[in-house]
């Protein structure tokens, strides 16, 4: 049903704006398994970058390094031109990098507004004070309206929402702060119907265009990626094998590339792989 369109050329125009994130030679091993073998990557301000790769190619590890969940063995990360080193998730977040994980970090039993403010709750009377639920409700309602996320009531627990609504809340939470610079989305459209997917795609486009947030999307579905990404990057066996603007390529071309790569791998055998 969905046809690949690269008609979002308006988005591509921003391609030459300043870079916000640069990775140089990122390596990461788990024991004898070399998951990442020298990743170089650049992300521009307000750009939506699609990260593609087979299972175990190293995408998730790369994402975890960017979010401070894991540390690279080797390599450098530059944020707005300055070298950074993330010691924890909180540290990466303090640098303006937010993540929405595949397993959805929402708490099923907590209300939508508590989820939106999770671990950044507003209180009366200091950190140990009481929760300022009234203020959090107001801000949550306001914020979701601004984002165009239509939720009947912010009092409902997250478990009562549909998958798409939950994802929207998770994305909204990650981008809530003014100083969110980079948003990492891990399979944001997984297991989602067409209408719900459209909601999330709109949200992503709005964030990148109107708020200048740079977004990295990890996804298996190439069709989706062509709908909202400015650029697509392919990672295979821990190495970046393709990096192209969606305007310069097409879904068919990418699919052909991936299939030929796969055939090659099968032909050369798993033992010989690696670059």
């Amino acid at each position: 049903m969905t046809t690949a369109t690269t008609s979002d050329s308006a988005a591509v125009e921003r391609h030459d704006t300043d870079e916000i994130l640069r990775l140089e030679g990122i390596h990461k091993s788990f024991g004898a398994v070399r998951v990442l073998q020298g990743i170089d990557m650049v992300l521009h301000r307000g750009e939506v970058l699609g990260l593609v790769g087979d299972n175990g190619a190293g995408k998730s590890t790369l994402v975890k390094i960017l979010t401070g969940f894991q540390r690279a063995d080797q390599g450098r990360i530059f944020l707005e031109g300055e070298q950074v080193r993330f010691s924890s998730v909180d540290d990466a977040r303090a640098h303006g990098i937010e993540t929405v994980y595949q397993d959805l970090a929402l708490i099923p039993q907590l209300s939508i507004f508590h989820n939106l403010f999770l671990n950044r709750e507003l209180t009366v009377g200091g950190r140990l004070g009481l929760l300022n639920n009234k203020r959090m409700r107001e801000l949550a309602r306001q914020y979701l309206t601004d984002m165009g996320v239509d939720i009947p009531t912010i009092e409902a627990p997250a478990q009562s929402l549909s998958g798409g609504q939950r994802q929207a809340i998770a994305v909204a939470r990650a981008s809530r702060r003014e100083d969110t610079k980079i948003l990492l989305l891990d399979e944001p459209l997984a297991a989602m119907g067409a209408r719900e997917a459209a909601l999330i795609i709109d949200l992503i486009k709005d964030l990148s265009r109107n708020r200048g947030v740079s977004i990295i999307v990890v996804d298996h579905n190439y069709t989706h990626l062509f709908e909202f990404c400015d650029r697509v990057t392919v990672i295979q066996q821990g190495v970046m094998t393709l990096d192209q603007r969606t305007a310069d390529t097409s879904l068919d071309e990418l699919m052909d590339y991936m299939v030929s790569q796969f055939r090659q791998q099968v032909a050369t055998g798993r033992a010989e792989r690696g670059h």
């Binding site: 924890s88 998730v89 970090a105 929402l106 708490i107 099923p108 999770l118 671990n119």
Partner: peptide, 9 residues
């Protein structure tokens, strides 16, 4: 949701 809570920091 322990994982979710940890991921939220």
């Amino acid at each position: 949701n322990r994982t979710g809570a940890a991921e939220a920091g």
